[in-house]
Simulated scan of single mutants.
Amino acid sequence: MADEPDDVPELDVPVGMFEDIEDLKAQVASLTTLVKQLAGVEDGEPGEASADEEETAGGEAAEGETEEEWQYPPFILLLDPPEYDDELRALIEWVEGVLVPGYLAEPSADARWCHLWWEHPVAIARLHAVWLAWQELTDPASCGYTGPSVWHRDHLDPALRELRASTGPFGGCVKGEHQIEHRLPSLVPSAWTHAED
């Protein structure tokens, strides 16, 4: 051929290498399709808006179309009833069913705990944050092998240090003596009982 340069070296490439390259191309195409599906991207290059998206991008969504927005878990102290009550009930189930039996030893002057912890807003806020982190970091699909370790190190241990310290929210709550006035509920919330709605 006249178009080929004269000094092209002959390469001895194994035939199996071409098969490997084709397999890799197929895997990349499959993963790209999967990423697009998970990201909600239609056909086309990443970053390109589809024709439908371009029509509705300037303002209102098409009639009958609802836009789904990612919802992060709420900060419990900002919730109003009945959402607050539902979230607190679920938190109480987790604290009494997982945290207390698995992680809390007998309370002492150095490691305080209040059996009416839900009467302390600071405790509710900290324990709710630990619980949300636990939900995320113990899910193998999203956290891998290190999630539980990260949860212990970054969330549980610091929260328990703050809660159980002598200067924490349970500072006056040793053996039934309380720093704040607790109201006694008609039914003590538990992991195994729920108030009738």
Results as ranks from 00 to 15, higher is better:
residue 97 G to M: 08
residue 82 P to R: 06
residue 68 E to Y: 09
residue 63 E to R: 00
residue 79 L to I: 08
residue 63 E to G: 01
residue 95 V to T: 10
residue 66 T to R: 01
residue 96 E to F: 07
residue 118 W to C: 04
residue 88 L to G: 06
residue 114 C to W: 03
residue 88 L to P: 03
residue 71 Q to C: 13
residue 71 Q to K: 07
residue 73 P to S: 10
residue 95 V to K: 00
residue 126 R to T: 11
residue 88 L to M: 15
residue 65 E to F: 08
residue 84 Y to H: 08
residue 92 I to S: 07
residue 91 L to Q: 06
residue 121 P to Q: 08
residue 122 V to C: 07
residue 66 T to M: 08
residue 88 L to S: 06
residue 81 P to Q: 14
residue 78 L to Y: 11
residue 76 I to R: 02
residue 98 V to K: 01
residue 80 D to R: 03
residue 87 E to K: 02
residue 99 L to H: 01
residue 86 D to I: 13
residue 102 G to C: 11
residue 96 E to H: 07
residue 95 V to H: 02
residue 72 Y to M: 09
residue 101 P to I: 13
residue 80 D to H: 03
residue 113 W to E: 13
residue 89 R to E: 15
residue 103 Y to R: 01
residue 111 A to C: 07
residue 71 Q to D: 15
residue 63 E to A: 07
residue 86 D to A: 12
residue 114 C to G: 03
residue 116 L to H: 05
residue 121 P to K: 01
residue 92 I to C: 12
residue 115 H to W: 11
residue 123 A to M: 07
residue 90 A to E: 15
residue 64 G to Y: 10
residue 98 V to N: 04
residue 112 R to K: 03
residue 97 G to S: 05
residue 124 I to S: 02
residue 108 S to N: 04
residue 107 P to I: 10
residue 103 Y to P: 00
residue 112 R to V: 10
residue 91 L to G: 04
residue 98 V to G: 02
residue 113 W to I: 09
residue 119 E to N: 01
residue 120 H to C: 12
residue 79 L to K: 00
residue 112 R to N: 03
residue 76 I to T: 13
residue 93 E to Y: 05
residue 120 H to V: 13
residue 95 V to W: 04
residue 108 S to I: 10
residue 124 I to K: 00
residue 96 E to T: 07
residue 75 F to V: 14
residue 123 A to C: 04
residue 102 G to V: 13
residue 69 E to F: 06
